[in-house]
Amino acid sequence: MDALKSAGRALIRSPSLAKQSWGGGGRHRKLPENWTDTRETLLEGMLFSLKYLGMTLVEQPKGEELSAAAIKRIVATAKASGKKLQKVTLKVSPRGIILTDNLTNQLIENVSIYRISYCTADKMHDKVFAYIAQSQHNQSLECHAFLCTKRKMAQAVTLTVAQAFKVAFEFWQVSKEEKEKRDKASQEGGDVLGARQDCTPPLKSLVATGNLLDLEETAKAPLSTVSANTTNMDEVPRPQALSGSSVVWELDDGLDEAFSRLAQSRTNPQVLDTGLTAQDMHYAQCLSPVDWDKPDSSGTEQDDLFSF
């Protein structure tokens, strides 16, 4: 819950932080000083300027060897085509990944977070970031790969997607708890209302004896509580940590079903599988986004697919 609360507080303090972009060759504004600060901008989305290598189908939802083989196929196909790589912007948030063309600003792909089953910074092609997700059109699994400016960037994108998945799962947990509370309150309110109706004398007997209905007592009954809980029953509950912020979080049926399955089948359902080692994760978390744009010590960066 700490990640969720800190993310909400950060967004309320400075929503404009989320509009910064990394990996864009110096076009961005001043960047936060450390990885923790940038992680807090996830709610509205972190932007990464990358190059799209392509996509291939895979048979399993996750796995280092599986993704490595898929990336190898994608890279080989991209090299064989001889075409310049498409420059894209990857927007990562707890909602998922939005992929747009840098030149036309046209939407290429919009992947809900619950469809993503794996992401990684490839070991062999260490400047490549990739994720595996279920197609929104059918049940097939797709591996999408992107060329980053350097290994640090690939690791940073991988960690960002993993963190977005974690925050999304926490949102789901909060929403589920809130819905259970509202359902319980609604049920209790309905029981109270039913009890009051059972003990209320029939209207005919009131008229016969000349008694008047006590409207004041009726007004004191917990009807307002019942209506408050039943009027918006169809509205999706939102985490309290975000009250007053500009973010509107809505959970669709697909996300609810997917996270429910994860909660039942996995020990740590909030953790998205990645190909990063503990050492890689520690190294990337210690980086400032400013470091992502620094040239690798191995030599001059080449803006070309064939540089790796």
Results as ranks from 00 to 15, higher is better:
D2W: 02
S6E: 12
A7G: 15
G8Y: 00
A10R: 06
L11M: 13
I12Y: 10
I12E: 12
S14W: 01
P15N: 07
S16F: 01
A18M: 04
K19A: 09
K19I: 11
G23D: 06
G25S: 04
H28A: 15
R29L: 11
R29C: 14
K30Y: 09
L31I: 15
P32G: 14
N34L: 06
W35E: 15
T36S: 13
D37H: 05
T38G: 13
T38R: 15
T41F: 08
L42T: 15
L42I: 14
L43I: 15
E44K: 14
E44G: 06
L47N: 02
K51H: 01
Y52E: 07
L53R: 00
M55I: 08
M55N: 04
T56L: 12
V58R: 00
Q60N: 10
K62C: 03
E65L: 07
L66W: 01
S67D: 00
A68T: 00
A68R: 02
I71R: 00
I71T: 06
I71E: 00
I71Y: 01
I74D: 01
I74R: 01
I74G: 01
A78F: 08
A78K: 00
A78V: 10
K79Q: 01
A80G: 14
G82N: 01
K83H: 12
L85C: 01
L85W: 00
Q86P: 11
S93P: 01
S93R: 10
P94T: 08
G96C: 07
I97F: 02
I98T: 14
L99T: 14
L99E: 01
L99I: 11
T100H: 09
D101W: 06
N102M: 12
N102G: 13
T104Q: 12
T104R: 06
N105D: 08
N110E: 08
S112N: 03
S112Q: 12
S112F: 01
R115H: 04
T120A: 09
T120W: 02
A121D: 06
D126R: 00
K127F: 00
K127A: 00
V128I: 01
V128C: 00
I132C: 01
S135D: 14
N138S: 12
N138C: 11
N138A: 10
Q139G: 12
E142L: 11
C143P: 00
C143A: 01
A145H: 00
A145Q: 00
T149C: 10
R151H: 12
K152G: 03
Q163I: 10
F169W: 04
F169T: 02
W172K: 02
Q173R: 14
E177W: 14
E178P: 09
R182G: 12
R182H: 13
D183G: 13
D183V: 15
K184H: 08
K184R: 14
Q187K: 07
Q187W: 02
E188S: 06
E188A: 13
G189S: 02
L193W: 04
G194F: 11
R196C: 11
T200Y: 05
P201D: 03
P202Y: 03
L203I: 15
K204S: 07
L206Y: 05
V207A: 15
A208W: 02
L212H: 14
L212I: 09
L212A: 12
K220D: 13
A221D: 05
P222R: 14
A228G: 06
T231L: 06
N232Q: 06
N232H: 13
E235G: 12
V236H: 14
R238C: 08
R238P: 14
P239R: 10
S243L: 04
S243W: 07
G244K: 03
G244T: 04
G244F: 07
S246T: 07
V247P: 14
V247I: 11
E250V: 03
E250F: 03
L251A: 11
D253E: 15
E257Y: 09
E257V: 07
S260C: 12
S260F: 03
L262T: 04
R266F: 05
D273K: 03
D273N: 07
T277A: 14
D280A: 10
Q285N: 09
L287V: 14
L287N: 01
S288Y: 08
V290R: 07
W292E: 13
W292C: 09
W292A: 03
D293G: 08
K294T: 13
P295F: 07
T300D: 06
T300P: 10
Q302F: 06
D303A: 07
D303P: 08
D304M: 09
D304R: 05
L305Q: 07
